[in-house]
Design a protein around this nucleic acid. Structure first.
Length: 688
DNA sequence: GTTAGGG
DNA sequence: CCCTAAC
């Protein structure tokens, strides 16, 4: 890895590795991902331990908690400011040596000491924030609820050119120490190399000394904490080469809370490769988020969609590149397990086990409170089985959505700080409201009682979640009035329109507090998403190379809010809530045409290729979908028009379907026959 | 991870 | 669109 190049921001001059297209068998093996693995790993690990301790005043925590209370109160929910104590409780602040320069905030020893003392006193809940400055081009910050009202923005100051990580750790399990320790060592080890190389170029301190302190602190955590969860936020600033093409700044970040790590794909030296294979990378991300790392699958909320819009222009004017990205533009995991992480969002206590705060695992319900990225809210609700009809909730924290920040390298650290500050302000300043999600669905009717909504002490507290939303939703007229653009069948265009799956849209989703057009809203969400995905999206104003600088602010639209909201899932509600069936997305004629064309050329049995060819950027189409669609197409073509349903497919296409189907069936038949022949002859040879 | 096929 | 066996 030529970290030197990276550090020099020599995007334009560097020959990025190109991943050649290889036969699938080869491609599969070839994992360019692997190339990044080490680095990514390093980021993960680093992120896992590197964080910034927020200086949280008790009043801050209190006021925040109070806010939550108020919000909830509106929902007629009796809320206890239980979090207060927790918030007040222990916070240990740790700083790496290397991060003590300039932008680093250092707590007063006395305070620190006190915090540590608290930690010891209250082993169940310890929050450790470690601020660690390192030189990767990532800024990661977290603003939990309590951070918001007060000096949260303070954190922004602690950003240097290299970037910032902030992590909030709520200790719980005894494993933390080991796991983290391991990771830290790994990461620091790896990071060290890079860092050292970078040192020359950086005005800010080295991170070489990170290792010791962090490890040490983590160990402390392990010792102290009886309960922990790690929250990795999503704030990143990426230095932008002043002369490089904007488009080369490909940044993708994945937080892997499952392993307390952070993944980043923002290595500039990999940019080309990544872009070339952005699709794959993206898919990988999706996989990561939806499979092994499902725990922290993106929690995209309504609020995240629009948080940034309002301030976009101002950012622009600042000539800063501030991009607000959805943490991940990822399709919502649909599999059961993918939703299981919801379980960890809201902790509740069906057993009414008194004041126990150390959510001990029960019935397989994860007690870990792992706040989700984005503006997701983690809430814990305590359900007391008394006859007291009150439902008690305790919201652990809210996160702000991920921000993507880009600033020219020539910017000063100070301006970067301001940029970050701006970004955060833009999110927080627009007003927020709280959304309630129950059983995976937004509860939009504020007039329903909790009882009516099914929120009761005996019921679905485990499926209750909260989200933060903008207090208003600017509605994009263009979207509302527009039909979803059909996925373009123009295969050829894909080459031209190929771009990283990070559509830039300044669009907002409408939202209604009542529930008049839920269907429509959802549809809209879909459309929105589709727009985002469509390579031929006509709306995308800033998608391509031509106008790189127009991307000063990027807002990545969100996915279906319902699916993304922080929704706790009940293990009991096996399917209904935990894994909502994917929304139906009938294939348009154009899509069918693209499919037919692809199949005509590639044949059946290569659905992955067909998918990529025909639906490169239609993320909602999987190759399984494509295959299934072909299946139904073949069926449709073989039945009478009267029996067909849905949008009529031109007979011409159906004819082609049949023709292609017949042709490829024949081919496969031939293949099979040949295989048999071969086998046969071989058998004969052997026999002879 | 893909493919194929039943549900 | 889901699920899953088989590869």
């Amino acid at each position: 890895m030529s970290s030197k190049k990276r550090l020099n921001y020599g995007f334009s001059g560097y020959q990025f590795p190109v991943i050649p297209k290889a036969p699938r068998s080869v491609r599969r093996r070839h994992s360019h991902n692997n190339l990044d693995n080490n680095q990514i790993c390093a980021f993960e690990l680093l992120a896992a331990v590197a964080g910034e301790l927020l200086q949280e005043s008790e009043s801050s925590a209190c006021s925040n908690a109070a806010e939550g209370k108020d919000e909830l109160a509106d929902c007629r929910v009796g809320v206890k400011c239980e979090q207060l104590k927790e918030d007040k409780a222990v916070k240990s602040e740790c700083f790496s040596q290397g991060s003590c320069v300039e932008s680093t905030y250092i707590p007063e020893p006395a305070a620190l000491e006190q915090n540590l003392k608290h930690s010891l006193d209250k082993p169940n809940h310890v929050e450790n924030n470690i601020f660690h400055k390192h030189n990767c081009s990532i800024m990661n910050a977290d603003f939990s609820q309590k951070d918001w009202s007060c000096a949260k923005l303070e954190n922004c100051k602690k950003v240097d050119r290299g970037g910032m990580f902030h992590s909030e750790v709520e200790g719980r399990s005894s494993n933390l120490g080991n796991a983290c320790n391991k990771k830290i060592e790994t990461v620091t080890q790896k990071q060290l190399d890079d860092d050292r190389k970078q040192t020359d170029d950086l005005t800010v301190a080295n991170s070489c000394s990170v290792k010791g302190p962090i490890v040490e602190h983590v160990n402390n955590n392990a010792t102290i904490n009886s309960d922990n969860s790690v929250q990795f936020p999503l704030y990143r600033a990426v230095p932008k080469p002043s002369f490089g093409k904007q488009r080369n700044n490909v940044k993708l970040g994945i937080r892997d809370d499952d392993e307390n790590s952070f993944r980043s794909y923002s290595h500039s030296s990999k940019i080309r490769a990544f872009r070339k294979t952005s699709r794959i990378g993206y898919r990988r991300i999706k996989r990561i988020l939806t499979s092994r790392h499902w725990k922290i699958a993106p929690q995209l909320k309504d609020c995240e969609r629009s948080c940034f819009n309002n301030r976009v222009k101002s950012f622009y004017q600042n000539r800063k590149r501030i991009c607000a990205l959805e943490r991940c533009r990822v399709e919502i995991p649909s599999k059961r397990r993918k939703m299981s992480h919801y379980n960890s969002d809201v902790a509740y206590d069906q057993q009414a086990s008194s004041e126990r705060k150390s959510n001990s695992p029960e019935k397989g319900i994860k007690r870990d409170i792992i706040p989700h990225r984005g503006s997701g809210a983690s809430a814990s609700a305590k359900n007391h089985q008394k006859k007291d009809p009150c439902v008690k909730f305790s919201i652990k924290s809210f996160n702000i959505p991920e921000l993507f920040i880009e600033v020219p390298e020539t910017e000063t650290v100070g301006s970067l700080k301001r940029s970050v500050m701006e970004a955060v302000r833009s999110i927080l300043g627009n007003g927020l409201r709280v959304g309630v999600v129950l059983e995976g669905k937004k509860v939009r009717d504020d007039n329903r009682t909790l009882q009516q909504a099914g929120v009761s002490q005996n019921g679905n507290l485990d499926t209750l979640g909260f989200t933060l939303e903008p207090s208003f939703y600017p509605v994009s007229p263009s979207l509302l009035s527009k039909d979803p653009p059909a996925s373009s069948p123009c295969v050829a265009d894909h080459e031209l329109t190929r771009r990283p799956p990070s559509p830039i849209l300044e669009l907002e989703l409408p939202s209604a507090s009542s529930d008049p057009s839920k269907t429509k809203l959802d549809k809209h969400d879909e459309d929105y998403h589709e727009l985002a995905q469509s390579p031929t999206n006509p709306i995308d104003p800033t998608s391509d190379v031509a106008i790189p600088d127009s991307r000063a602010v990027v807002i990545i639209p969100h996915l279906n809010a319902e699916a993304l909201a922080v929704v706790p899932g009940s293990p009991k509600n096996s399917r209904s809530e935990l894994s909502q069936r994917r929304i139906r997305r009938p294939f348009s004629v154009a899509e069918v045409e693209a499919l037919v064309e692809a199949v005509e050329q590639l044949g059946t049995g290569r659905w992955r290729d067909v998918k990529i060819r025909a639906f490169e950027y239609a993320d909602h189409r999987t190759y399984v979908d494509v295959k299934d669609k072909w299946k139904t197409l073949v069926h449709t073509a073989s039945i009478t028009p009267q029996q067909r349903r849905g949008e009529p497919v031109p007979q011409e296409l159906l004819d082609r379907v049949l023709a292609a189907h017949a042709y490829w069936s024949q081919q496969h038949g031939k293949q099979h026959a040949e295989a048999l022949k071969m086998a046969d002859s071989q058998v004969q040879n052997v026999g002879a």
